[in-house]
Simulated scan of single mutants.
Amino acid sequence: MVPIVDISPFVDEASYDDETRRRVAEQWDSAMMHVGFAIITGHGVHPQTISALREGAMRFFADDLASKNAYNHGPYGNPLGGYTGVGAEAVSRTRDAHGSDGGADHAGALPDLVESFVFKPESPMSRPAVLEGAGAAYHAAILRVLDTLHRLTAASLGLPADFFASYYSPHQPETVSLRLAYYPPLSPEAQVSSAMRYGEHTDYTGFTILHQDEADVDDIDSGGGLQVRLKTGEWHAVPPTPGAFVVNIGDLYEVWTNGRWRATVHRVMKPPPGSAAASAPRLSIPFFTGPRNDAVIEAMPTCVDEGRPPKYAPVRALDHLLKKLQGSNV
């Protein structure tokens, strides 16, 4: 099971005492150690901020391909954001030694059955009118959630409250990405071309803050939604919790925590051919978070000692990100 953590004691600190925050910090550390995922409530994002973006995204993706391609500014992961169509990405090809399964060879993985729009408010390129206001509001709200998660994480790992500030400031717009990931209804050809809508992978950098499609269900065989691989090797479906976000760590947190927290492999399976879910679209909204491109990530001081030497070489955040993006682009 993916644990649920109420982060409100770190959102509205004046209303809670230190002991309450200590207990939440312990829950957070346990979730990231044992699962690498958590469902967060009490985050402070207004439901209308979420619904407005989802409505705008569905209107954008319902448009014709030529209209959407007008916002294509390069391959997925380019610094300008914008649209990329189905078949542009094969995320399983990015597998490496990160992740609780120790990595796997997916060099021949088929392209993923997803199209995307990456919303970057600071990009000089134009953005669809149906996304402009809602995307900017959502982007700003999730940055506030990220700040809360950093304070929570610092408390969880015995670090100064401002530990992450030097890794994220000054803010570099290209290091965070608001992605609208749209899974179109499966054509007869797509239903037999691959077992997955989005392949097995670990995320690349810091936290991913995800709003799931509310139609996802708790059914490992027929849901067609997010699934995570537990340390036992079993796959577990993650049904949406109303009003919540799903948060998971990327590879750089493995390096930062010296393996205490492990990036968890996850995927999006296809629903069975002919099912209601197969003929319905799916929209998930992940927000990928830094750190800054030039930040050098190495084991935190509280995660190393004489008995726990660093397991990973220091790595520049941009170098790791580019390696992953280059591996995923078809």
Rank of each mutant, 00 (worst) to 15 (best):
T41F: 02
T41E: 01
G42F: 12
G42K: 09
G44D: 06
V45F: 04
H46F: 05
P47Q: 11
P47S: 07
P47M: 09
Q48C: 08
S51V: 09
S51E: 03
S51M: 10
S51I: 03
A52V: 07
A52K: 11
A52C: 10
L53H: 07
L53G: 03
L53N: 08
L53W: 06
R54E: 07
E55F: 10
E55T: 12
G56M: 02
G56I: 03
A57D: 04
A57I: 01
M58F: 11
R59N: 07
F60P: 01
F61E: 04
F61D: 02
A62G: 05
D63L: 07
D64T: 09
D64Y: 04
D64L: 03
D64R: 11
L65K: 09
A66K: 11
A66C: 05
A66E: 09
S67N: 08
K68P: 00
N69Q: 15
A70L: 00
A70Y: 09
A70F: 00
Y71D: 03
N72F: 00
H73P: 08
G74N: 08
P75V: 07
P75F: 02
P75H: 08
Y76R: 06
G77V: 07
N78M: 01
N78A: 05
P79C: 00
P79L: 00
L80T: 13
L80C: 12
L80W: 11
L80G: 09
G81C: 06
G82D: 01
Y83W: 08
T84N: 15
G85V: 12
V86F: 14
V86C: 14
G87N: 00
A88S: 15
E89Y: 14
E89D: 15
E89F: 15
E89S: 14
V91G: 00
S92Y: 05
R93V: 08
T94L: 11
T94G: 02
R95D: 07
R95C: 03
D96I: 01
D96H: 10
A97V: 11
A97Y: 13
A97K: 15
H98C: 03
H98K: 14
H98W: 14
G99W: 02
G99R: 03
S100H: 14
S100T: 10
A104K: 08
D105N: 13
D105C: 01
H106R: 15
A107H: 12
A107K: 13
L110Q: 14
L110T: 13
P111C: 00
L113G: 06
L113C: 10
L113H: 15
V114W: 12
V114Y: 12
V114G: 06
V118Q: 02
V118L: 10
V118T: 14
F119L: 04
K120W: 10
K120D: 10
P121T: 05
